[in-house]
């Protein structure tokens, strides 16, 4: 159980996390979703006591991370797979972590086996591929058999096989009753991995709840209609106060389901060539909710020539 209340972090004048309150429940995978630069990593570092909140508080099972005894046995975290000395072997890396947590060395071989790195255990970690580094990081997170697990963008840069492995792994961990909190900027990934969502944009909480509710609330369903008598149908729909837009040789109707449109057409003897309900995509939902909170927006419809000085006042982010 992770509980954040009023969590805030300033870097100079930049506000990275802004009065963020949320909870992460046990036995579930909770996705931590937000565009790049939304403050996900900063929040995770504050949960783990690496960064000090400017104000607010975050606790794990009621305790601050820095007050935990042998913290790796309570919380396992993978924030960055590259937090390993490149000349140290995978086994040596896990052994010092185990020693620091008073865990037996036999546990090192167990977690190496769980993540499938036994064969390369004595190879230097600097030579690992991203997928192998990620597995080593997960092995480190699992070392203390913790109840709470945090992963920051674990599938970033992985091949499909690696992504699938991590996804299944998260489900297994949650099924074992652990608290799994995993961040991503990819909603499609979260939809397949998480049951609950905490969505942030520009450091502020946008949504907290289940994935299903998020999609249901945030997506707007439309129906694409094609007909040789499109003008008549348009008039009829407009008369009913339905909003619609022209889309090439079709119209896109929103706010009414396809059955109602079909019945209206039949009642007026209008031939339909297409009646196609469009289920709003997760990405659309995400963009709809976070669209105005994306910190760096690419202005695709503008010239690339130097902007006027007044337009360039956005502050530099923390590195």
């Amino acid at each position: 159980m992770i509980e954040a209340t009023g969590l805030t972090k300033h870097y100079g004048r930049t506000v990275a996390v802004d009065n963020l309150s949320f909870g992460v429940g046990e036995g579930r995978v909770t996705g931590f979703l937000g565009p790049n630069g939304a403050g996900k990593s900063t929040t995770m570092r504050m949960i783990l006591g690496l960064d000090r909140p400017t104000s607010g508080d975050v606790r794990i099972d009621g305790e601050h991370y820095r007050d935990l005894k042998r913290p790796l046995t309570t919380v396992g975290a993978l924030l960055d797979a590259k937090w390993v000395h490149p000349n140290r072997s995978a086994r040596a890396h896990l052994r010092w972590l185990a020693a620091a947590s008073k865990l037996p060395y036999s546990r090192v071989d167990e977690v190496l086996d769980i993540v499938g790195l036994t064969a390369v255990a004595n190879k230097r970690a600097g030579g690992f591929s991203l997928g192998m580094s990620q597995r080593l990081g997960i092995a480190g997170a699992l070392l203390g058999d913790p109840r709470v697990l945090l992963f920051d963008e674990p599938v970033n840069g992985l091949d499909p096989e690696g992504i699938l492995w991590i996804r299944r792994f998260m489900h297994r961990l949650a099924a074992e009753g652990r608290t799994v909190f995993v961040s991503s900027h990819l909603l499609s990934e979260m939809a397949q991995t998480a049951q609950d969502l905490v969505v942030i944009g520009r450091g502020k909480l946008i949504y907290q709840g289940t994935v299903d509710d998020f999609i249901a609330n945030a997506t707007e369903n439309t129906v694409v209609v094609r007909s040789p008598e499109l003008d008549r149908l348009t008039e009829l729909l407009r008369a009913d106060g339905v909003s619609l837009v022209a889309d090439g040789d079709a119209i896109r109707v929103s706010g009414v389901d396809s059955a109602a449109i079909g019945e209206l057409a039949a009642a007026n003897k209008i031939v339909l060539h297409e009646l196609n309900p469009q289920i709003g995509s997760l990405e659309e939902a995400f963009i709809q909710l976070t669209g105005d909170t994306v910190e760096y927006t690419a202005h695709t419809d503008q010239h690339t020539a130097p902007a006027e000085p007044a337009g360039a006042t956005e502050e530099a982010p923390p590195a």
Binding site: G49, W83, A100
Partner: peptide, 11 residues
């Protein structure tokens, strides 16, 4: 960044 890993293991 093994310093961070150290601080995670030994806060």
């Amino acid at each position: 960044s093994t310093m961070r890993a150290t601080f995670l293991a030994v806060p």
